[in-house]
Simulated scan of single mutants.
Amino acid sequence: MQDNPGMIWNFTKMHGAGNDFIMLDGVRQPIHMTPERARALADRHFGIGADQILLVEEPLHPEADFRYRIFNADGGEVEHCGNGARCFVRFVHEQGLSHRNPLRAEICTGLIVLTETDDGEVTVDMGQTRFEPADLNFDADGLATQACADDTLYRLDVPGHEGPLLWSLVAISNPHAVLQVEDVEHYPVDVVGPAIATHPRFGQGVNVGFMQVQGPGHIRLRVHERGAGETLACGTGACAAAVAGMRRGLLANPVRVDTHGGTLHIDWEDGRLRMRGPAATVFNGQVDIDALTATFRESTRI
């Protein structure tokens, strides 16, 4: 690629199990991300198209190799992304930014460890898992609850939808609510997902997982991600569903998670949560960010 003349950004399009990303190297080129620029890049009609944008930068933490930031398609910055974490490792190695393996990455909630394996997949040490309502900025005051093995389920219904809906709460840097369903393919994810993701009891919104148990080590999963809608796969969502199923006594470690975009493998043992799955490069390109943003602004002006 030619040298970056200023507002021409080099980018790489990647995906992890169909969850797609625009990867930006903020180490070797100046990148100033704004919500509007993120929305323009992610737009599938007027931009490049992606579920999320990942910006790789020099670390602030002395023990990290890199820092990366994650922006949803709606322009909002979020805490963590498991599929994006795997793409981050592949991106850093392919771009020659580092050949270290494993890598220590700084995200806004701390450090995570990522390892590219000989079979071409990436294993991510996902960090701490928490379950209290306060960990998700969730207002549980006055809600009915139900004990289920080691888990506590919270009743949170959607108006007009047949209930009751009993949710597991899991925080893996970012917040997740997980619902067990009998048939995930025919469940109204497009109705229940947005209603729960933006429910006022979640102070910062929530990612919404719909889990169908296939066996003690196997689930099928769909996830509505806050700020992005339903995605083909969600790494932290897969972790949250697997952990919720194990806490409910429905699943045994490890867990295979089948999504519309591919398969992820979750291991949760002795308090350590690991996720393994694919990461693939689609293409490299360049974008005039000012021209793209101006076009996007005009296209969305009504």
Rank of each mutant, 00 (worst) to 15 (best):
Pro5Cys: 09
Pro5Leu: 10
Met7Ser: 14
Ile8Gln: 14
Trp9Asn: 03
Phe11Ser: 06
Lys13Thr: 03
Ala17Val: 03
Gly18Val: 06
Gly18Thr: 08
Ile22Leu: 06
Ile22Asp: 11
Met23Leu: 13
Leu24Ile: 06
Gly26His: 10
Gly26Arg: 06
Gly26Ile: 07
Arg28Thr: 15
His32Trp: 04
Thr34Asn: 07
Thr34Pro: 05
Leu41Val: 06
Phe46Ile: 11
Ala50Gln: 02
Leu55Glu: 12
Glu57Cys: 11
Arg67Tyr: 07
Tyr68Lys: 02
Ile70Trp: 00
Phe71Tyr: 15
Phe71Asp: 05
Ala73Val: 11
Gly75Thr: 06
Val78Cys: 13
Cys81Trp: 00
Gly82Ile: 05
Asn83Ala: 11
Arg86Cys: 05
Val89Arg: 00
Arg90Leu: 15
His93Met: 00
Gln95Asn: 09
Ser98Pro: 06
Asn101Tyr: 11
Pro102Lys: 10
Pro102Arg: 12
Glu106Phe: 01
Gly110Leu: 12
Gly110Cys: 13
Leu111Thr: 03
Val113Arg: 11
Leu114Phe: 07
Leu114Met: 15
Glu116Arg: 14
Asp118Arg: 05
Asp119Met: 02
Asp119Val: 01
Asp119Lys: 02
Gly120Asp: 10
Val122Gln: 01
Thr123Phe: 01
Met126Pro: 10
Pro133Lys: 07
Asp135Ile: 10
Gly142Ala: 12
Gln146Thr: 09
Cys148Gln: 12
Thr152Asn: 05
Thr152Ser: 07
Arg155Met: 15
Gly160Asp: 00
His161Ser: 06
Glu162Ile: 04
Gly163Asp: 01
Leu165Ser: 02
Leu166Asp: 15
Trp167Ser: 13
Ile172Gln: 05
His176Asn: 08
Leu179His: 03
Gln180Thr: 09
Val181Arg: 04
Glu182Ala: 15
Glu185Val: 08
Pro188Gly: 10
Asp190Cys: 00
Val192Asp: 09
Pro194Cys: 06
Ile196Met: 13
Pro200Trp: 03
Gln212Asn: 03
Val213Arg: 09
Gly215Lys: 04
His218Trp: 04
Ile219Trp: 00
His224Gly: 10
Arg226Val: 09
Glu230Asn: 12
Leu232Glu: 14
Thr236Gln: 12
Ala241Val: 02
Val243Gly: 07
Gly245Tyr: 06
Met246Trp: 05
Gly249Asp: 13
Leu250Met: 11
Leu251Gln: 00
Val257Phe: 02
His260Thr: 04
His260Leu: 13
His260Trp: 03
Gly262Ser: 08
Gly262Arg: 08
Trp268Pro: 02
Glu269Thr: 14
Leu273Val: 07
Arg274Cys: 10
Arg274Val: 04
Met275Gln: 12
Gly277Tyr: 01
Ala279Met: 02
Thr281Asp: 09
Thr281Val: 14
Asn284Met: 10
Gly285Glu: 13
Gln286Tyr: 06
Leu292Ala: 15
Leu292Asn: 15
Thr293Cys: 04
Phe296Pro: 05
Ser299Ala: 15
Thr300Met: 12
Arg301His: 14
